[in-house]
Simulated scan of single mutants.
Amino acid sequence: MPKRLYAPVFGPGEELHSDPPSDWKVKDFGTNLCIYYVGSPGEVSERLWLRGNWHFRESSAVNPRVNVKKQGGKPQRYSDRYSVYTYKSGAESVVECRAKHEPKLVGNEKVPDRFTLSLDVPYSLFDGREKGTAHKVLGKLMLAVAEGVADELPCAEPVRNG
């Protein structure tokens, strides 16, 4: 993740760490979680939680706007590309996966075809900053994360809306 994208969250001079290491296995059909932080694990000043999960297109969990509302946020559209929505303390998006053959099967099991991403920061992180800062910073960060994840998905072709 380029430093210019996370500097507004953690500060420009801070070294970014992750727990667990951020080499997600997005090819595995499960949930991924990574916590980014600055400082040592026992003395963390700020945190950013990033979750990813596979879903079927029929699931209500593949709607980032609805997911923001479930978090208690007021959704603001940042980008049509990967359906990025932001709110005061986070962002949601979804990467659609076009399978080589529909429906894609592994053994006799249908494989999920949507990878949802959820990013959360402390609720008060953007307090006192110029209106719209959270939308701009978190939207740009989520879009970059979605781009990176799309390049790693086991799809014939990720759908790059917008």
Rank of each mutant, 00 (worst) to 15 (best):
P20S: 02
D120M: 15
E102A: 13
T31P: 12
S59F: 03
R47L: 05
N63M: 05
K131F: 08
L119K: 05
Q71F: 11
I35S: 07
K69N: 01
G90L: 02
G30E: 14
P12N: 10
P21W: 04
E130L: 11
G30M: 10
N108P: 05
H101Y: 01
K110T: 14
Y85T: 02
S93T: 10
H101V: 13
A146R: 05
E109K: 14
T116F: 01
A144W: 08
K88W: 11
K136D: 10
Y85I: 06
Y37P: 08
R65M: 14
V106M: 07
L119Q: 05
R65S: 14
L5C: 07
V95Y: 06
P20L: 02
C97W: 00
K74W: 12
Y85G: 04
H55S: 07
E46A: 14
K27R: 11
V9L: 11
V121F: 06
R47K: 00
E96I: 00
R57T: 09
L5H: 09
Q71S: 13
K27C: 06
L141P: 04
V137M: 00
K25L: 09
L138A: 00
Y37A: 04
S22Q: 10
Y36A: 00
K3A: 12
R65W: 10
E92Y: 07
V38P: 00
V26L: 11
L16F: 04
S124D: 15
G73K: 03
K27W: 12
E102C: 07
G128P: 03
Y123N: 13
E43Y: 09
L50A: 08
N32P: 00
L50K: 05
F10R: 04
V38G: 06
L48K: 02
K25P: 00
V137T: 06
H55K: 08
G11L: 11
T86Y: 07
S45G: 14
D23C: 07
K25V: 06
L125M: 08
Q71H: 14
G73N: 06
G107R: 10
G139T: 07
G148I: 05
T133S: 10
M1A: 11
K25T: 09
S79D: 15
H17P: 01
G139H: 03
G42E: 15
D113I: 03
S79W: 08
S118G: 11
T116W: 03
N67R: 15
C34A: 12
E15W: 02
A134L: 09
G107A: 10
F29Y: 15
P103F: 08
N53M: 13
L119N: 04
D19N: 13
T86H: 06
A134W: 00
G52E: 00
R4A: 15
K25I: 01
H101F: 03
G52A: 01
M142P: 09
H101D: 01
V106T: 08
L16C: 02
G52P: 02
E147L: 00
L16D: 06
V68F: 09
Y87K: 08
V95E: 04
P122K: 02
V26Q: 01
K104H: 10
Y78I: 04
H101T: 10
P41D: 06
